[in-house]
Amino acid sequence: MTKRIHWSNLYLILVFIVLYAPIIFLVVYSFNSGTTMDHFNGFTLSHYGELFADTRLIAIVLQTLLIALLSALISTIIGTLGTLWIQQTSRPFFKNTLLSLNNILIVSPDVIIGASFLIFFTTLSIPLGFTSVLLSHIAFSIPIVVLMVLPRLKELNSSMLDAAADLGANQAQILREVIIPFITPGIFSGFFMALTYSLDDFAVTFFVTGNGFTTLSVEIYSRARQGISLEINALSGLLFVLTLGLILGYYFVSQSHQRRMLKRKRGVAK
């Protein structure tokens, strides 16, 4: 028995080494005083200095963040409203159709989304650039928001809504005072997912970005095609720390929220 567990641990350690080795490799070489990822010549922070002096790259980072925040915000609003629609539809056929349509963009390969959006924008003669990238990011984030909010909305007890209506709340009040506060955790995780999808996207953006506008992923792609530049390593070091912070933050926020919910439930039981 102990032997089996021993082997399983060894296997997991191997898997985790493989999962993290490339990332650690990248970050370690960001401190390399040489210019390649082959030999570690000595410790330096100069690549980080280069990174912060590179105003073009910083502008691209800011553009990427702006796109991510705007698209996450807008898609969260539209997605949440869509979730209300899906949930309140009474005919099962219509509901399933809505859900299937919702999930099309989630299962579609990125190239299909990118190519079809490119045709779409050219047909409507929407200029390729900030607008087209923003619209695309909003479009592919909406279904994720819906999938995050829907389970939460399903948990909402309809007697709460009846109670609110009996107490004289009108539709807008019910929405604002009962439904929205209840589904807020779902909305937050939807927003968070939309944010990460937008930051992570390469393929769709690559298709609809045109010439003038780039996001970070597209920029990394074009630089990586030119070969090794340790400035990218420095960038990935920064991004890794940022991601780690974001995820830990999200983890603790959701944990403390769960604890609060538990407490509230216990309070009700008393």
Binding site: F202, L244, I247
Partner: peptide, 21 residues
């Protein structure tokens, strides 16, 4: 969570790492 964490690192950065490796 640690298993999923690498998926939040940009795909292109991971591909770029393998160019060096």
């Amino acid at each position: 969570l640690l298993t999923i964490l690498p998926t939040w690192i940009n795909l292109l950065l991971k591909a770029y790492a393998f160019i060096g490796i």
